[in-house]
C-alpha cells in the first residue's frame, strides 16, 4: 500500500474521529453502566448531576483530569508513565479496519483482523508495565494475572474468529460482512453458534470484565494493576477499558451479527446497535455474577474453550473443504 497524501489524510481524520468515538463511548457507557447497575440493584444510579444524572460521567472525568497525579516512592518512572499511554494509543489503531458502514472504514486493509489481533496484544503489555512499575504487591499480582489471562483467552478468541475466516475465505472485515445477508437468519451466528459462544466468553475474559475481572479483582487485590494510579493515569486505563469493550463488540457484530447489514436498510446504525447490545450484555453479566477463581478461569479456557474451539475449527475446515 503506498502511503499517498490522500491515505494519510484519511488515516488522520479516522484517528481523530476514533478519539472522539472513544471519549464519547466512555462517557455514554459509564452513564449506561451506572444506570443499569442502579436499576438492577433497585436504586436510581446517578441522579443529581444534570437531568437524570446525565452529565455525571462528564463531571467525573473533569474531576479525574484535575486530580493530582500521585506517584508512589520507588516507582520505575519510565514504565509507570508509559503504561497508561500504551494502554490508550494502540486502541486507536485497532478501530481503523472496522467497517462501520458500507463505505465507512478508517483504513480498508485487506487483512484487517490480523491488524486488530496483533495490536490487541499491547493491552496486556500495558497492564504488565503498570503492575510491575508501580512498586506495589497488589499491582504485581494483578499484572501477573493479567498476563496469563490475556495470553490464555486470546487463543479461543482467535479460534472462534478463524472458523468464520475459514468459512468466508477472507481476512478483510468488509468482505466478511458482505458475505452475510441483511436478515438475522443470514448471519454467521446461526451458522457458527459454538464459535459465537466461545467468542462471547473469551471476549469477557479478554477485556478483563466481571466475572473474569481477575487482574483488578476488587475484593482480593483492591484494584489490581492500577492500584497506584490516580488522576489522568487512571482515566486513561478506564478509557482504554471501555474502548476495548467497544472494539470487541464491534468485531463480534462484524463477524457474527452481520455488521452494518440489517433488515430494511443497511447502515452505520446497525453496527452501533449490535455493538451496544453486546456491550449491554457485558454490563448485565457484570452485575449478576460473582467472580471466578483464577484456576477456574484458566480451566474454563484450556479445558473447555480451547478444545471446543479446535473441534469447531476442524469441523468448519472439513465442511468448507467438502462443500466448496
Amino acid at each position: 500500500m503506498d502511503l499517498s497524501l490522500v491515505t494519510f489524510a484519511q488515516i488522520l481524520v479516522a484517528v481523530l474521529a476514533i478519539i472522539g468515538l472513544m471519549v464519547a463511548n466512555a462517557v455514554v457507557m459509564v452513564y449506561v453502566e451506572r444506570k443499569a447497575a442502579g436499576f438492577i440493584q433497585r436504586r436510581p444510579g446517578p441522579y443529581e448531576v444534570g437531568p437524570w444524572g446525565t452529565i455525571q460521567a462528564i463531571c467525573d472525568s473533569m474531576k479525574l483530569l484535575a486530580k493530582q497525579i500521585f506517584v508512589p516512592a520507588n516507582v520505575d518512572w519510565v514504565l509507570f508513565f508509559l503504561a497508561p499511554v500504551l494502554a490508550f494509543f494502540p486502541v486507536l489503531l485497532l478501530f481503523l479496519p472496522i467497517p462501520f458502514g458500507p463505505y465507512l472504514t478508517g483504513l480498508a486493509v485487506p487483512d484487517g483482523i490480523v491488524l486488530i489481533l496483533a495490536f490487541a496484544g499491547f493491552g496486556v503489555l500495558s497492564n504488565l508495565f503498570a503492575g510491575w512499575a508501580s512498586n506495589n504487591k497488589y499491582g504485581l499480582l494483578g499484572a501477573a494475572r493479567a498476563v496469563s489471562q490475556s495470553v490464555a483467552y486470546e487463543i479461543p478468541l482467535i479460534l472462534a474468529l478463524l472458523a468464520i475466516i475459514f468459512q468466508t475465505g477472507s481476512l478483510s472485515l468488509t468482505e466478511i460482512v458482505e458475505a452475510q445477508g441483511s436478515y438475522p437468519w443470514q448471519w454467521n451466528i446461526l451458522v457458527q453458534p459454538l464459535a459465537f459462544f466461545i467468542y462471547l466468553v473469551s471476549l469477557v475474559g479478554e477485556t478483563n470484565r466481571a466475572p473474569f475481572d481477575l487482574p483488578e479483582a476488587e475484593s482480593e487485590l483492591t484494584a489490581g494493576f492500577h492500584t497506584e494510579y490516580s488522576g489522568m493515569g487512571f482515566a486513561l486505563f478506564f478509557l482504554s477499558e471501555y474502548a476495548n469493550m467497544l472494539l470487541v463488540s464491534f468485531v463480534c457484530a462484524t463477524f457474527f451479527l452481520g455488521g452494518y447489514k440489517g433488515p430494511f436498510l443497511d447502515g452505520i446504525w446497525w453496527t452501533f446497535i449490535k455493538a451496544y447490545l453486546i456491550m449491554f450484555f457485558i454490563v448485565w453479566i457484570r452485575w449478576t455474577f460473582p467472580r471466578v477463581r483464577f484456576d477456574q478461569l484458566l480451566n474454563i479456557n484450556w479445558k473447555w474453550l480451547l478444545p471446543l474451539g479446535l473441534i469447531n475449527l476442524w469441523i468448519t475446515a472439513i465442511i468448507v473443504k467438502l462443500l466448496p
Binding site: 443499569a36 436510581p44 441522579y47
Partner: peptide, 21 residues
C-alpha cells in the same frame, strides 16, 4: 443456572426502585 441468575437481574432491571429520594 447462569441464565436463571440473569433472568432475575433482568426482572429487577425493569421493576420499580426502592430508593427514597
Amino acid at each position: 443456572s447462569l441464565l436463571v441468575g440473569m433472568k432475575i437481574t433482568l426482572i429487577f432491571l425493569f421493576s420499580p426502585q426502592k430508593t427514597v429520594h
